[in-house]
Design a protein around this nucleic acid. Structure first.
Lengths: 319, 319
DNA sequence: TTGTAGGCGTTATCAC
DNA sequence: GTGATAACGCCTACAA
């Protein structure tokens, strides 16, 4: 029996008789034959692999999102390679180059907070490797992206804090490089406007996710003349550092201050002093959607069309 | 210029003149040439990839260990593929078969709590794919493994609880399938013996890491005639569920009960009611060591030698 | 120092 | 329904 017959039999080609197929499959099992995927990839010029590039696995947001990606990838018999940039743009560049070398069929990426060049990503697309931006994206030019409905969620949070009686609501904004930061800030502003509270620039601080900077921001904000009684925070990990700071330095304020951040993380259930509420970003869903979109792009390479933007709604979870 | 000349030039082969090398490298850069790793892997029958199979990325222990693996892999220009079994032995089997198909050069695995067959792993080794077991392992037959010094750490914990005045020290043991569970239990027993407190089987419960089972175990233990005042727990995630249960159902006991578990997780810093202490497993170090061992095995396929066991010491971190 | 040829495992194409 | 063959891109032994 020839190699080609065997190959066809194994892939259940229509031209092969059932008898032959059965015999081949039986022997393959008997001899523990394992097809060499490397050869297959090489021949087909496909790797059946998705690259996922994220800042850090310690962030439970990404863990949930990856679960969603794996779910979809598995259904398409695709593998997933996970790589962490550790919020370092250079490391990220290196990872992407590696993914190109390895001819991944598509990339899902949450860019690092320091990433400011779009060239690498256009280069990926020019190499026929579609890219989907997850949660963080650039402003322009637009790439395919799946993001939370940040603006609306920002309004939601601001509004809820107002309902709780707060009139001095501060915002800890994310790094300026991220579109996400601007969107969440925009939601905050919109919320304030609708509530007829003016925006006080004195209540705004930018944070880089480091514990020190968060502590510094809270310290400064609590020192101003008419200090905030509530904080709308870029993400829950930052909220936790904020709470820790207040707990230690202003324990009496703890009861009076309310904090809301993005990310309804599993670890919250272990906390005793919880944020007042969290914005559930549905990160698993975001993973599902970005992988679904990516698979679509991979399977229709001819017609990429204009960049797609998918917005996932957030919910306010009160703790 | 021929293909082979170019190939040699790119890999800085000795036989190529410097002039040629320079010219080739320059053009490669200019034309954005990226070598096709798939072809290379195929030809060399190597993938320059390590497979890492772990139960779940939500567990910060594994995230730190992976960081260590990536560190070493990167130094050897190896890629890392991460896959999660979600503590499901079948899913794990599927993952490993996939890794074999993809001809990974080596595997680091933390087996699921339900894994009881060793065949797959001998099969991997028979396929020339070395395996290193991380933290969890089988009793016999022995495979290469990197584990915490569980027995000594168990003694350490038991002893510390005794120093705090406790005489009724319960143990929440991990699943019986895991060698780790037995080792930690052994340490507990040894500790008790050295302290001249007899082992009371009534103070032992097995947990499967689910919240319900942990709650049930604590519930039962607090109901017995002479209930425990301290708990030595298989891992910190279980400790947290235990603390939550006590907090809700026996708030008055909270001050009197001390809990120690394996795993000095980053999330502990956000907790207000912390475990009394945690055993620092040095998971990053464990990742480093297992990857180093694996790279050694990959690079010396001729002489595998007897299975290697590496023990990483633990420290008791008091919160 | 450079070029030639063969082969790695799989699949698509075409001939039988 | 089955078999022969070429081709994918890279590497390497050997020839020139």
């Amino acid at each position: 029996m020839s190699v080609s017959t065997v190959s066809k039999a194994l892939s259940n080609h229509a031209n092969i008789s059932n008898l032959t197929k059965e015999r081949v499959h039986r022997l393959a099992r008997e001899w523990n034959y394992v097809p060499n995927e490397a050869a297959r990839h090489f021949k087909q010029n496909k790797s059946f692999t998705l690259g996922v590039v994220i800042p850090d696995l310690i962030d439970q947001f990404f863990v949930a999102a990856i679960r969603g990606v794996e779910e979809i990838a598995g259904k398409h018999k695709y593998q997933v390679i996970i790589a962490q940039s550790h919020e370092d743009a250079e490391k990220e560049e290196q990872i992407i180059k590696n993914l190109i070398s390895n001819r991944v069929d598509g990339v899902i990426i949450t860019i690092s907070k320091n990433t400011n060049k779009t060239e690498l990503f256009t280069q990926l697309e020019q190499n026929g490797i579609p890219v989907v931006f997850l949660t963080r994206s650039f402003g322009q030019p637009l790439f395919n992206n799946v993001t939370a409905d940040n603006i609306y969620a920002g309004e939601l949070a601001t509004n809820y804090l107002y309902q709780l009686g707060h009139r001095r609501i501060a915002h800890l904004m994310g790094p300026k490089t991220l579109s996400t930061s601007h969107q969440r800030f925009e939601g905050y502003i919109k919320g304030l406007e609708k509530l007829k509270i003016g925006f006080d620039p004195g209540l705004l601080r930018e944070v880089d996710f480091s514990e020190e900077q968060t502590h510094q921001a809270i310290k400064e904000l609590l020192k101003i003349k008419n200090p905030p009684t509530a904080f709308f925070v870029f993400k829950t990990y930052v909220s936790l550092d904020a709470i820790n700071y207040i707990k230690i330095n202003h324990p009496k304020l703890l009861q009076k201050i309310d904090i809301i951040g993005f990310g309804n993380l599993p670890l919250i259930k272990y906390l005793d002093i919880k944020p007042k509420a969290s914005l559930e970003e549905n990160s698993y869903e975001m993973g599902l959607q970005s992988a679904t979109l990516l698979m679509k792009l991979i399977n229709n390479p001819a017609d990429p069309g204009p960049p797609v933007s998918i917005k996932i709604p957030c919910e306010l979870i009160i703790h």
